[in-house]
């Protein structure tokens, strides 16, 4: 059911350094460390084409998704909805810690969180949510029409049929790069930091 315009080109499979994944995005793999049974994380490298859709940023401005992703910074992306009470808060808390730990590199990284419940998540609700998670200036939240949100979810292999079926996912890409690092599962802030630093090094 994934959209046609995204293609798997798994050039590297590193389940935090171990066994190969049978399918990208399948987060049920073997552990790397003693905590990995409780926190399976699968990292892959995948090519995606960013769909040309209009989203509404948390400041109320209509923006183009490709333009937001091509402003000279690396992109770190996730999908959330503000009334999620289980793991979106964890993903957002992880983003906050990650953004803080970036230090001076913060300016070089654009954090983007796209709502998968755009009709509920108005720009005002997204602002409240961003405030709750102390989002710094380089972290924006996005809503828009349902169709636009779906297009973005499908393009990044994040669509799971409905918002309640979502799975934890972070994607990141160096500025201007074609390929993305896709991290399925609950990555910690320091894991995001280490992935991101590698991207910044080649940028």
């Amino acid at each position: 059911m994934f959209a046609k315009n995204w293609f798997y080109s798994i050039t590297l499979i590193s389940i935090m350094g171990l066994a190969p994944a049978s399918r990208a995005g399948d987060a049920g793999q073997k552990p790397r460390s003693d905590d990995a049974a409780s926190r399976p994380v699968v990292t892959t490298t995948v090519g995606y084409s960013v769909p040309d859709v209009q989203l509404v940023r948390d400041d109320g401005k209509q923006v183009s998704l490709p333009a937001e992703m091509n402003d000279g910074r690396a992109v770190v992306l996730n999908f959330i909805f503000t009334t999620c009470s289980s793991f979106c808060p964890l993903s957002s808390q992880t983003f906050r810690e990650f953004q803080q730990e970036l230090g001076p590199d913060r300016e070089r990284v654009h954090l983007m969180s796209i709502s998968i419940d755009p009709e509920q998540d108005t720009p005002a609700r997204l602002r409240d949510y961003a405030h709750k998670f102390a989002a710094g200036p380089g972290w924006q939240h996005y809503t828009g029409t349902l169709a636009a949100s779906l297009a973005a979810q499908r393009a990044f292999g994040a669509y799971r049929g409905d918002k309640m079926s979502h799975t934890p996912l972070t994607l990141m890409r160096a500025a201007g790069a074609k390929t993305w690092r896709r991290i399925d599962g609950f990555a910690t802030p320091s894991e995001l930091l280490s992935e991101c630093r590698q991207l910044l090094a080649v940028q």
């Binding site: 909805f81 009334t83 999620c84 009470s85 419940d117 009709e119 509920q120 349902l146 049929g161 409905d162 918002k163 309640m164």
Partner: peptide, 23 residues
């Protein structure tokens, strides 16, 4: 009900229905 509404194919007068905790 919160969990299954997004899957609902019969939605009557509404284009779609969706709920969640605190919705």
């Amino acid at each position: 009900l919160e969990g299954m509404l997004d899957h609902q194919m019969l939605t009557g007068y509404y284009p779609r229905l969706s709920l969640a905790p605190n919705q």
